[in-house]
């Protein structure tokens, strides 16, 4: 049965068919359609062009479009697969798919690695780890002395850098996460399982059966 509602609906420039995205991600077609509702909201919050700009991303994350945050920047850059400065709908869904509770754990581990490999060198270096700790402290009320920061970074590095070559590669990262599974807890958003409840309007009009 066709749907009279979706005919003539204006789609955003990077729009991709929910059936295609559902086939490539852990989302059902209904969930992709619900994500489109969320995407439309986020991508029109400042500039109504159907693309998520960094300011819109920051506004949604922090309620502040001008807030700068190293980790939010990294997330944005990883979502922006085409590297054109904006997040399109397909990029949004595929990237969020990694955060789905049913996504393969290997994908979550790999995504976290890319997130922390700040300079995209294929490994996490000690300087990068320290830079991230400092960025975290900068955004929180936590105050630690330089000595304590060094101790935390050194200790973590000695545990994760099994080969002792001064950098954490993907293999070492995988091993480290398997011993410390809480490290990728933030790579799962339980909310994604309820996305159709949060954004039901389009789902009710969906033309495709899951």
């Amino acid at each position: 049965m066709g749907c009279f509602c979706s005919k003539g609906v204006k789609r955003t420039p990077g729009y991709e068919e929910p059936t295609v995205l559902a086939a490539e991600t852990p989302f059902t077609v209904s969930e992709v359609e619900a994500l489109y509702e969320l995407f439309k909201k986020l991508s029109s919050s400042i500039i109504d062009d159907g693309l998520i700009h960094k300011e819109e991303f920051n506004l949604a994350l922090f309620r502040n479009r001008n807030k700068r945050n190293l980790f939010a920047d990294r997330i944005f850059d990883l979502f922006d697969v085409k590297r054109n400065g904006v997040i399109e709908f397909g990029e949004f869904v595929r990237s969020l798919g990694v955060f789905h509770p049913n996504a393969p754990i290997e994908d979550k581990i790999a995504f976290a690695f890319r997130l922390y490999d700040l300079r995209n060198t294929g490994s996490i270096e000690q300087e990068e780890l320290k830079e991230m700790v400092l960025a975290l402290l900068h955004e929180s009320d936590l105050v630690l002395s330089e000595d304590v920061i060094e101790t935390i970074v050194d200790k973590t590095f000695s545990q994760a850098d099994a080969k002792g070559d001064g950098k954490i590669d993907q293999e070492e990262w995988k091993e480290f996460v398997s011993k410390n599974p809480s490290l990728i807890r933030n790579m799962t958003l339980p909310y994604l399982k309820d996305i159709t409840l949060a954004f039901p309007s389009f789902v009710l009009r969906s033309e495709v059966e899951d």
Binding site: L61, F71, I75, Y116, E139, I152, K155, T156
Partner: peptide, 26 residues
Amino acid sequence: VAPVTMNAFELISTSQGLNLSSLFEK
């Protein structure tokens, strides 16, 4: 937990910038 005993990655993972659940708040 005293911060000095924390794993640096564990500390980092608490960043608000990594908490994407905020995207879904209405």
